[in-house]
Structures are given as structure tokens and as C-alpha cells.
Design a protein around this nucleic acid. Structure first.
Lengths: 176, 176
DNA sequence: GTCTATAGACTGATAGAC
DNA sequence: GTCTATCAGTCTATAGAC
């Protein structure tokens, strides 16, 4: 389905170089269709951004909701999820990419990004609260993994992400 | 001096909406000169980015080097510096803005951003090492304040920055 | 759902006069 | 150091045929 292929491609390009870094021409070229065909699926670029962030939020929050088990395991898998999203320092979380330059997006997209942060923080809150060995509350944990993604992206390798999150994972090994 | 005015303006615009979000036309309009005059000072946009990141790195690293006193005070003022740079959730550190979309920059600028992260981490390392109450090493501290800036920028207010850094500042109050 | 063709605005950049 | 004038290329978006 062309619409899904467009979403997949546009999300990847957004997370790699930002929403302003690709054009309808880029999308059409990659899929072997014309720009007009892309406009058929997403009339404006703002509509495309909206669809991207809605899809992304739903997908990630569903993944988080499926992370059952011990809080220590949940937090480990949370960090692993953000680590995988970094793709060896070549990508960012979509909401980090869009959240860094909010003025380039519609109000609706800005709101969806803010909601994503609220929802992830809400998921993290009981997890970290159940872990006395972890010294950081939910907002700090989210800032840590998002900042770790930025540093990895800037370096072009995953190493800074691991350096930044290693102490957190070490705290999880500490017997309570 | 026109050159300095251009640097000040371009840095502000870069930190507000990113390097791709302003044009030579924007700069010339704001300063009441022509685009050609802007090109006289910075022949290409890549040259402008290079000058911006060099200026910024020098300035911030000089500020850090001037932060004497107890390690606890140094770390408090480090967080305050990143908090001020957020400008109530309307700006980012220049190296966060450029580091988030490195492929939009020249290799030289990418290298300068990476060097900035290395230098700030090097400054932080002995500071946090001298503070047993602080549970995070230097790379994690830098990721924390950078992620806190992203969340504040996405929300458009400083509140997420404070929520993310509050536990760290609380650790500094703990008597060793 | 895809195409051709086009519109109008903007982009970074250059040549050459003053 | 600033100007006028201009360039070729790109951008998002639209109209209308198939």
C-alpha cells in the first residue's frame, strides 16, 4: 500500500535528518511515483506530519504497555527500546526530532508531541517508583534517554548512548 | 559591527528553530541590508555555521572554565547555565540543535559539535567525581541536561527542564 | 490512484558597479 | 562593505486528464 510505504519512508527520513530535510520530490522519487500522487495521500506536509506523529505515538505507547514483568525488567527494556530507536546513532525518536524544532510544526503536531512525553512519563512513573535502587524519577529518566539519543546522533555512533545510560542500568543490578 | 550582528542573530535563530529555518533573506531583512552584503561576511551558509559553532564553543567552554568553587557549586551553576540557555523552553544549546541533525552540516561542523560534547564531558568528569552524593557520571549528566532542554523546547515552557533536573539538584543538598 | 503540466514563491549563490 | 540584478534550482501545492 502506497500510503503505508509513504509513512514508513517519511518517518525514517524525519528521524534521520528532520522533517524539513525531505521533500515531496524525495518521497515520490524513492517510491517511483509522481509528486501529485504523494499529494493524493497527504494533501499537505502538515497533514503528513500529523499522520506520522499519530502513528508513531500509538505504536510506541502500545509497545510500552506490552512490557510486563518486574519493574527492573520494564526499565531495562525501556532503555533498550530507546537504544534501538537510535539505530547506532543514525536516528532519533520521532518526538525528539519534532520536539526539538516545534515551531516548524502545526499546533496539532506540537500538542501530540507534548502528549507523547506526558504519556511516556506516566508509564515510567510507577516503574521507577517501584525501584528504590534507581535514583531518578520518571521525567529525569526520559530526559536521560532522549539526551543520550542526541549525543549518539551527534557522534554518529551508539557509544555515547551507552556511556550515558550505563550507570542507570548498573543501579538496576544493585540488590535492594 | 555587521559581522557580529549577523552572528548574534543567526545563533539565536539556529537555537530557536534550527539552522535550516532561516535564510540569507531573513538575515538581510532583519539587519536592513541586502543578501549580497550577508554573503560578503559569510560566503556560504556552511561557513556561517562553522563560525557560529566555533564562537559558541569557545564562549561556553570559557564560561565553564571560570566556574570555580566547590564541586557542588560548580555542578549547580552548570545546570543553571543549561537552564538559562533554554530561555524558558524557547531555545536549545546550539550544539544540541546542530547535533540533532548532523547530516545537514559540514563534516567540520559535525566535528566541532562532537568536540564540544567531549570538552564539556571532560569538564564535568572531575566535578561529579568529587561528589559522592551524585549518582551520575559526566556523560549521563550531560545527556540529562540536554534531554531536559529538548523536553522544555517541545513543551514551550521551562517546567519539564526543572522536573528533569530537580532530583540531581536535590542530591547536591544531601550531606555527604 | 496515478499521471502531465504548471504555478508562485523561495533558496543559496554570483557578477560587477559604487 | 554595500548595492542592483540575476541565476538555476528547489519548494509546496493545484488543476485537470486518464
Amino acid at each position: 500500500m502506497t500510503r503505508q510505504a509513504l509513512l514508513t519512508l517519511a518517518e525514517d527520513l524525519s528521524r534521520q535528518n528532520g522533517f524539513d530535510a525531505f521533500s515531496y520530490a524525495d518521497l515520490s522519487r524513492a517510491l517511483g511515483i509522481t509528486k501529485a500522487a504523494v499529494h493524493h495521500h497527504f494533501p499537505t506536509k502538515a497533514a503528513l506530519a500529523q499522520a506520522l506523529v499519530d502513528d508513531y505515538s500509538t505504536r510506541v505507547l502500545t509497545e510500552l504497555a506490552a512490557l510486563n514483568g518486574h519493574p527492573a525488567d520494564q526499565l531495562r527494556r525501556f532503555v533498550a527500546l530507546y537504544r534501538a530507536a537510535s539505530a547506532d546513532g543514525t536516528r532519533l525518536c520521532l518526538c525528539v526530532a519534532y520536539g526539538a524544532m516545534p515551531a516548524r510544526q502545526s499546533e496539532a503536531v506540537q500538542g501530540a508531541v507534548a502528549q507523547f512525553h506526558t504519556d511516556v512519563t506516566a508509564w515510567l512513573t510507577p516503574v521507577t517508583a517501584a525501584l528504590p535502587a534507581v535514583t531518578l524519577p520518571a521525567p529525569a529518566l526520559l530526559a536521560l534517554v532522549e539526551g543520550a539519543q542526541i549525543m549518539a546522533r551527534a557522534a554518529g555512533t551508539i557509544a555515547p548512548f551507552d556511556a550515558a545510560t550505563q550507570p542507570l542500568l548498573a543501579q538496576l543490578e544493585t540488590p535492594v
